Simulated assay, not measured.
Amino acid sequence: MKKDIVPILTTHIPELKLCNRGKVRDVYEINDTLLIVATDRISAFDVVLPSGIPYKGHVLTGLSEFWFKYTSSIIPNHLITTEIEHMGNPILLQYKDTLMGRSMLVKKVRVVPVECVIRGYLAGSGWKEYQKTHTICGIKLPGGLKESDRLPEPIFTPSTKATVGHDENITFSRVVDMVGKKLAEELKENSMKVYLRACAYALDRGIIICDTKFEWGITADNKMILIDEALTPDSSRFWPCDGYEPGKPQHSYDKQFIRDYLENIRWDKKPPAPVLPPEIIQKTSEKYLSAYKTLTGKNLF
């Protein structure tokens, strides 16, 4: 890392209305738009840790911007700009040092209450479910698959969008019950389209996108657009192609490194979370920055 920075764990812009302070993002309302600020907070097992990860917010915003632009020719999205000077609000200029590089001005939409997960490989909760039933979210899979195996074809495995606690994996028929058949089919088709395009790009750069999560919104004129973040180490499992070997967990660019550390120290996964050692913080930061450079071909700083 080129320079030392102090992680930003929270933001305060009293002149603006704070809509939501999530696990990672602080969201402010500006007329008919939203300002999404990616902090350096990190969560594990649905608990926000007391330690921030330097550069994390910049990586999440930078990668989201990259993917929004890369996929905009096939799917519209909510991004307006990441440039503070172009957001048209003088208040934001007063907080430029905090906001720069970690903020997106986006369209305000009606959020579809479904987490749209696409899995191309067998890992995480999908692997756990497969071992018990040979299914994921009601989708029957062939027998004999190993952990981290590539699936015969990517699958759509939605989940509920929980505001607190764990998201719950659900079947496609449940999505139909929640939002209607037409919208459910659109969610599946559009999520798959973005995933397949991103996978092809990432593979050329030595990264396997094991799985990823998308969120979608409906505009005032009833159009579906991609929202929230896109294909970041927080919303995806990124594996380096080098060393990929089915039958075991893979090295990754995401926060699995932190989860493994917390498992090793036998934290009970209940608040308060333990403070992370400096070496774990630095290694995690390096993983995020490496994912950004590998995918975009650019250094963030």
Rank of each mutant, 00 (worst) to 15 (best):
I42Q: 11
T157G: 09
A291H: 07
S285I: 03
K132I: 11
I208W: 05
Y195D: 10
R25K: 10
R41N: 12
E185Q: 13
G101N: 00
I75F: 13
V106Y: 00
I53P: 05
C199L: 15
S159A: 13
K193T: 07
V275L: 11
W216H: 12
E185S: 08
R110G: 05
H78A: 12
S235A: 10
R25N: 04
Y253P: 11
D97T: 08
H134R: 14
C137S: 14
Y201S: 08
E279S: 15
A220R: 12
T81F: 06
W127T: 03
T212Y: 10
N89V: 11
I208M: 04
T39I: 07
H134G: 01
T39R: 07
E153Q: 15
I8K: 11
V112M: 09
K255Q: 09
D242E: 15
I227D: 01
E185L: 15
V114N: 02
T133W: 13
A198Q: 11
T71P: 02
H78K: 13
W67P: 03
F257L: 08
M178L: 13
V48A: 03
S159E: 10
K248M: 11
F68C: 05
T160E: 02
N77Y: 08
R205Q: 10
K56G: 01
K182N: 06
P246V: 08
T11S: 12
A123F: 08
L141A: 04
V117T: 10
L79I: 15
W239D: 02
Y244L: 05
Y261V: 06
Y195L: 07
I91S: 02
K213W: 12
P50L: 08
L289R: 02
G101K: 01
I36V: 15
C210D: 12
D40F: 02
G126Y: 03
E65V: 14
I8V: 15
D26Q: 02
H251L: 13
L151T: 01
H12D: 14
R237S: 04
L300W: 10
C19W: 10
L105M: 13
M104H: 11
T33C: 13
Q131S: 06
T296G: 05
V111G: 00
Y28N: 12
E168S: 12
I91F: 05
R174D: 15
V109S: 03
S73C: 12
L16K: 04
P14Q: 01
I30N: 01
G52D: 00
H134K: 14
R150L: 01
I170E: 02
P154N: 07
K128L: 14
P14Y: 06
I139M: 08
P7M: 13
I265K: 03
G247S: 07
T294G: 03
P54A: 12
D221C: 09
G120F: 08
M178V: 11
T10N: 15
